[in-house]
Measured scan of single mutants.
Amino acid sequence: GKRLNIQLKKGTEGLGFSITSRDVTIGGSAPIYVKNILPRGAAIQDGRLKAGDRLIEVNGVDLVGKSQEEVVSLLRSTKMEGTVSLLVFRQED
Protein backbone atom coordinates (compact mmCIF):
# COMPACT_ATOMS: atom_id res chain seq x y z
CA GLY A 1 0.00 0.00 0.00
CA LYS A 2 0.96 3.65 0.02
CA ARG A 3 0.62 6.67 2.24
CA LEU A 4 -0.99 9.83 0.97
CA ASN A 5 -0.96 13.32 2.43
CA ILE A 6 -4.20 15.10 1.63
CA GLN A 7 -5.09 18.64 2.62
CA LEU A 8 -8.77 19.52 2.54
CA LYS A 9 -10.07 23.07 2.93
CA LYS A 10 -13.19 23.08 5.04
CA GLY A 11 -15.89 25.10 3.30
CA THR A 12 -19.57 25.68 3.97
CA GLU A 13 -20.41 22.12 2.99
CA GLY A 14 -17.88 20.62 5.36
CA LEU A 15 -15.25 18.00 4.70
CA GLY A 16 -17.67 15.76 2.87
CA PHE A 17 -16.76 12.29 4.04
CA SER A 18 -17.87 9.90 6.74
CA ILE A 19 -15.74 7.50 8.75
CA THR A 20 -16.22 4.09 10.28
CA SER A 21 -14.16 1.77 12.44
CA ARG A 22 -13.73 -1.90 11.64
CA ASP A 23 -12.84 -4.94 13.69
CA VAL A 24 -13.42 -3.32 17.06
CA THR A 25 -11.91 -5.33 19.87
CA ILE A 26 -13.35 -4.94 23.34
CA GLY A 27 -11.43 -2.27 25.19
CA GLY A 28 -9.20 -1.76 22.19
CA SER A 29 -9.21 0.72 19.40
CA ALA A 30 -9.91 -0.12 15.82
CA PRO A 31 -8.47 1.41 12.69
CA ILE A 32 -10.57 4.25 11.30
CA TYR A 33 -11.51 4.09 7.64
CA VAL A 34 -13.20 6.46 5.22
CA LYS A 35 -16.71 5.04 4.91
CA ASN A 36 -17.93 7.11 2.00
CA ILE A 37 -17.36 10.31 0.09
CA LEU A 38 -20.39 12.58 0.09
CA PRO A 39 -21.65 14.20 -3.12
CA ARG A 40 -20.84 17.65 -1.74
CA GLY A 41 -17.96 18.97 0.29
CA ALA A 42 -14.20 19.27 0.28
CA ALA A 43 -13.33 15.61 -0.30
CA ILE A 44 -15.10 15.20 -3.63
CA GLN A 45 -13.85 18.59 -4.86
CA ASP A 46 -10.29 17.57 -4.05
CA GLY A 47 -10.82 14.15 -5.59
CA ARG A 48 -8.00 12.24 -3.89
CA LEU A 49 -9.64 10.71 -0.83
CA LYS A 50 -11.34 7.38 -1.48
CA ALA A 51 -13.71 5.15 0.46
CA GLY A 52 -11.66 2.46 2.17
CA ASP A 53 -8.66 4.68 2.85
CA ARG A 54 -7.40 4.21 6.40
CA LEU A 55 -6.89 7.40 8.40
CA ILE A 56 -3.50 7.45 10.11
CA GLU A 57 -3.23 11.08 11.21
CA VAL A 58 -5.46 14.14 11.35
CA ASN A 59 -3.57 17.45 11.56
CA GLY A 60 -0.47 15.60 12.72
CA VAL A 61 -2.29 13.76 15.51
CA ASP A 62 -1.69 10.02 15.43
CA LEU A 63 -5.02 8.21 15.58
CA VAL A 64 -3.72 5.04 17.25
CA GLY A 65 -5.82 4.43 20.35
CA LYS A 66 -8.44 7.02 19.43
CA SER A 67 -12.11 6.12 19.23
CA GLN A 68 -14.28 6.98 16.26
CA GLU A 69 -15.93 9.72 18.35
CA GLU A 70 -12.54 11.27 19.15
CA VAL A 71 -11.58 11.26 15.48
CA VAL A 72 -14.88 12.89 14.52
CA SER A 73 -14.31 15.67 17.05
CA LEU A 74 -10.76 16.19 15.77
CA LEU A 75 -12.16 16.62 12.26
CA ARG A 76 -14.91 18.94 13.49
CA SER A 77 -12.53 21.12 15.48
CA THR A 78 -11.16 22.64 12.28
CA LYS A 79 -12.49 26.15 11.72
CA MET A 80 -14.49 27.08 8.65
CA GLU A 81 -12.09 27.89 5.79
CA GLY A 82 -9.39 26.10 7.76
CA THR A 83 -7.36 23.25 6.32
CA VAL A 84 -7.48 19.70 7.57
CA SER A 85 -4.35 17.69 6.90
CA LEU A 86 -4.95 13.96 6.53
CA LEU A 87 -2.43 11.16 6.33
CA VAL A 88 -4.09 8.08 4.89
CA PHE A 89 -2.99 4.59 3.99
CA ARG A 90 -4.37 3.03 0.82
CA GLN A 91 -4.13 -0.66 0.04
CA GLU A 92 -3.23 -1.28 -3.57
CA ASP A 93 -5.63 -3.48 -5.51
Rank of each mutant, 00 (worst) to 15 (best):
L49H: 01
T78H: 08
S77Y: 10
S73H: 13
S73T: 11
E13A: 05
S77T: 09
G11Q: 13
M80A: 15
R48V: 04
K35D: 15
G60H: 06
I19N: 02
V24Y: 14
N36D: 15
R76M: 09
L38W: 13
N5Y: 13
D93L: 13
S18N: 10
Q68T: 14
A42W: 03
K2W: 05
I19S: 01
D53S: 01
D53G: 03
E92C: 07
E70W: 14
G52N: 07
D46C: 02
L63G: 02
V24D: 11
I56S: 04
G28N: 15
I6L: 04
V88W: 02
L63D: 01
G16V: 04
T12E: 15
T25Q: 09
Q91P: 14
D23C: 08
I6E: 01
A51W: 03
S29H: 15
R90K: 05
R48C: 04
R3Q: 08
R40M: 04
R54M: 09
E57M: 11
L63H: 00
R54I: 07
K66F: 13
I26Y: 10
A30M: 07
L75Q: 01
V72R: 12
R3P: 05
D23E: 08
T20Y: 06
K50L: 07
T25M: 11
G82F: 07
L55K: 03
I32Q: 01
L63K: 02
V64T: 13
E70T: 10
Q7W: 09
G82N: 15
K9I: 13
V64Q: 11
N5L: 10
E70C: 06
D62Q: 09
A43T: 01
N36H: 09
V24W: 15
G16D: 04
K2M: 12
G60I: 01
E92I: 12
V61T: 14
V24F: 12
E69G: 10
E81K: 12
I32F: 14
V72H: 14
T78Y: 09
L74N: 04
I56V: 15
R54P: 00
N36K: 12
N36R: 14
L63V: 09
A43Q: 03
K79G: 13
A30V: 08
S73L: 09
L8F: 11
E92M: 11
A51E: 05
E13K: 08
V64E: 10
G1C: 09
I37W: 00
S85I: 06
D23Y: 09
L4V: 10
Q68P: 11
G65D: 08
I6R: 01
K66N: 04
G82C: 12
R76P: 03
Y33V: 11
N5E: 14
G28V: 03
L87H: 12
A30P: 15
K35G: 15
A42R: 03
G47M: 02
L8I: 08
N36F: 06
Q91D: 11
N36G: 10
G11M: 08
T25S: 12
A51G: 06
G14D: 07
K35F: 02
S18H: 09
G65V: 03
N36Q: 13
R90Y: 03
E69N: 07
E57P: 02
P39C: 11
S29Y: 09
Q7T: 14
E70K: 08
R40V: 05
F17D: 01
D62V: 10
V64K: 15
G28P: 15
R54N: 08
E57R: 10
K66P: 00
M80W: 05
L15G: 01
S29N: 11
T78N: 12
R54C: 08
L38K: 15
A43D: 02
G52Y: 02
F17A: 00
L87M: 14
D93V: 10
G65A: 06
D23Q: 12
S85P: 02
F89T: 13
D62F: 04
E81P: 10
I44W: 07
S18V: 05
L38V: 03
A30H: 12
I26P: 12
I44R: 09
L63P: 02
L4Y: 11
R40K: 06
R76G: 09
Q91N: 15
K50E: 11
P39G: 15
A42Q: 03
I6H: 00
G11C: 10
S29L: 11
S77V: 10
T25C: 15
S18F: 04
D46H: 02
K79N: 15
F89S: 14
K35V: 04
N59C: 04
L63E: 01
G28S: 05
K35P: 01
R22E: 12
S21Q: 15
R90E: 01
K9G: 03
G52R: 05
R3G: 08
Y33Q: 06
I37C: 02
L75D: 00
V64W: 05
L49T: 01
V24R: 07
R54L: 08
N59W: 02
P31K: 12
S29Q: 11
N5G: 07
A51R: 07
T12P: 14
N59I: 00
D93Y: 07
D23R: 06
D53V: 03
P31N: 15
N59G: 05
L4P: 03
N36S: 13
D53I: 00
K79C: 08
Q45C: 15
V71I: 08
D53A: 00
V71D: 01
G1W: 06
Q45W: 08
A51V: 10
K2P: 01
P39Y: 05
V64L: 13
Y33D: 04
G11N: 14
S85Q: 11
G41L: 01
V84K: 00
K9H: 13
I19P: 01
R90G: 01
A43G: 03
G28R: 06
T78V: 13
G82P: 05
P31H: 12
S18R: 08
D62T: 07
L87G: 13
K35C: 09
F17M: 03
R48M: 04
S85M: 08
L4K: 04
I6D: 00
F89C: 09
E13L: 07
S18Q: 13
N59L: 01
K50R: 14
L74Q: 06
I19R: 01
I26A: 08
D46Q: 03
R3E: 15
S18M: 10
S77N: 11
P39V: 08
K79D: 11
P31R: 08
N5V: 14
V58N: 04
E13S: 07
V61W: 06
E92Q: 10
K50S: 05
N5H: 13
G47L: 01
E92Y: 06
R54Y: 04
F89I: 11
L55Y: 01
R48N: 09
S21Y: 07
E81H: 11
K9Q: 15
L4I: 06
T83Y: 12
S73F: 11
P39M: 07
Q45V: 12
K9T: 13
G65N: 10
V72T: 12
D53R: 01
V88G: 01
S21D: 14
N36T: 14
G11Y: 04
R48G: 06
N59D: 12
R48F: 03
E70V: 07
Y33H: 10
T25A: 13
G60Q: 04
S85Y: 08
Q91F: 07
S29A: 14
D93M: 10
E69K: 11
L63Q: 02
Q45I: 08
F89M: 13
P39H: 07
G11R: 07
K2T: 05
N59H: 03
D93H: 11
V72N: 12
G14C: 02
P31T: 10
L49M: 05
R54W: 10
G60D: 11
S67N: 08
K35E: 15
L75H: 00
K79F: 14
G65L: 04
P31Y: 11
I6C: 01
L63I: 09
L38C: 06
L86V: 04
R22D: 13
R48D: 02
E70Y: 10
G82Q: 11
E13R: 07
V72I: 15
Q68N: 13
V71E: 00
D93G: 08
E13I: 06
Q7E: 14
G47D: 03
R76Y: 15
Y33M: 12
R54K: 09
A42M: 03
S21N: 15
V61M: 10
L74M: 12
L55T: 00
L4W: 04
Q68E: 15
Q91A: 13
V24N: 10
G47S: 04
K9S: 14
K66A: 11
E13H: 10
R22S: 13
R48A: 06
R76Q: 13
G47Q: 04
L63A: 07
G28K: 03
A43L: 00
D53M: 01
K79T: 14
Q68I: 14
S18G: 15
K50M: 14
F89E: 15
I37M: 01
S18T: 14
G52F: 02
A51K: 07
F17L: 03
N36W: 02
L4A: 02
K50Q: 13
R3F: 12
I19F: 03
Q7D: 15
K50W: 05
P31E: 07
I37N: 03
I44F: 09
E81Q: 13
G11K: 06
G1T: 11
G28L: 09
L86R: 00
K66Y: 07
S67H: 07
D53H: 02
Y33P: 00
M80F: 11
R3N: 13
A43R: 00
I6F: 02
Q45L: 08
S77A: 14
I26W: 06
G28Y: 12
G82W: 05
R3L: 09
